[in-house]
Design a protein around this nucleic acid. Sequence first.
DNA 1: GCGCGTGACAACGTATACAATAAGCGGCAT
DNA 2: ATGCCGCTTATTGTATACGTTGTCACGCGC
Lengths: 244, 244
Amino acid sequence: MSQHQDLAGQRASGSRRGKGGDGAERHEVIYRSISDAIIEHRLKPGARLREDALAEVFGISRTGIRKILQRLALEQLVTLTPRRGASVTRPTADEAREVFEARQMVECGLMPAVAQRLDEQSVNALRELSAQEQKALQEGDHSAAIRHSADFHTHIARLAGNATLAEFVERLCFRSSLILAVYGRPGHLGCETHDHEALISLLREGRGQEAATLMGHHLRAVEATLAIVEEDQEAPDLHQIFLN
Amino acid sequence: MSQHQDLAGQRASGSRRGKGGDGAERHEVIYRSISDAIIEHRLKPGARLREDALAEVFGISRTGIRKILQRLALEQLVTLTPRRGASVTRPTADEAREVFEARQMVECGLMPAVAQRLDEQSVNALRELSAQEQKALQEGDHSAAIRHSADFHTHIARLAGNATLAEFVERLCFRSSLILAVYGRPGHLGCETHDHEALISLLREGRGQEAATLMGHHLRAVEATLAIVEEDQEAPDLHQIFLN
DNA sequence: GCGCGTGACAACGTATACAATAAGCGGCAT
DNA sequence: ATGCCGCTTATTGTATACGTTGTCACGCGC
């Protein structure tokens, strides 16, 4: 999909170009591919991401892959250990707590502004996202459901009109997806879509403060479904185990 | 020229480890060097950062420089235009507004937690930073004052115990420094140190809510000293100029 | 029999070489 | 004289080659 700019590019460049239609664009696509795979749990936390394997899969050299990997590392979706390569980040319990605390502060704080600026078109977009999420849930498609849920929260944040904060929320949502992968209990899914619908209604009626309260409860509810316990970390702390 | 890295090379070559005594560490140092120069306004917004010039200055190849430049770009301290190279970011007026709005939300929101967790040692550290800032101001050392002010805000945020939010605040402070460089009026400096001292006192007494209020006023005051008007952007909008 | 040292392999980090592109400039035509 | 076009150059983007380092396995010594 979205090849509608191909013809424009063709005409403009006079088609003298070599293989890479648009180099920078291709990197963006690859970035999204990997990012999506992580967020949708097709790549699980801890999975190793070897540079040359990725380079071969996507048909570019390791140089490009490294650039993408570094970007993902700065967004804390992958962990880059100095001479051991890249792997999908496995969030610690502390990080999980931090991420939800941050979401609590920012997403709730954004609600009043969203309630003020919301227009009918945005309401429809949100409803669409919420519906897609519910549909995915009913079909048992975990990957899609998680993705749509993150999209919903990100989209709402964007409506407040502050791109900086919206981007921050987006990254928090991505990390939340990782947290769900590690600490989520198999039965429960992350977000109750019922909450999402209620949230839309409150926002539509301009009741920003109540929306903030609901968002707070919603996030707390999601966090409560998690089993946030430090799994056996790599350093099992033999002292504490055997010297007691 | 620029053989000042000989000492580093000397020690490294003395051992068997090959030249790069600690490769990753060196990159970190270079990153900090450039980052500091930007934050302290020794590199002004709009300044071009050519890859091979930096490579020569720091004695590494362009590959390493590019990695650092990309990191700086993701933190929005430098702008990377596709085939034109890197330059120090010149924040737009919108970005300025967004950054201060974000700081308002997060830094104020952090105050209660800081007030709760503050211990005597941290108070001393904060006082030290505030004193350094004031000293730099009195000596007319703009660079140092700006840096210490950013350090102060970052440090306070860190005390809330949420590394994720603290890192976000740090990045906002860095960007604020850029904003000051572009929109700051020559006379005024960013932060009134008096506010900082008062903030410490409130926090020390555990009055988190009042500290949040003060922080809010403080940030608004800083923002008010700015002349946030869109300067002549690259498209001077000839229509509006001549067709009126 | 078990632990440790050494060697081979594989993966990453760095540098360098090459290709592609946009800007600057001079010449040429009108 | 002026505007346009092609060439040159400077600078980034990409790939590949090499060096370094961490890991694993095999063998030796205790």
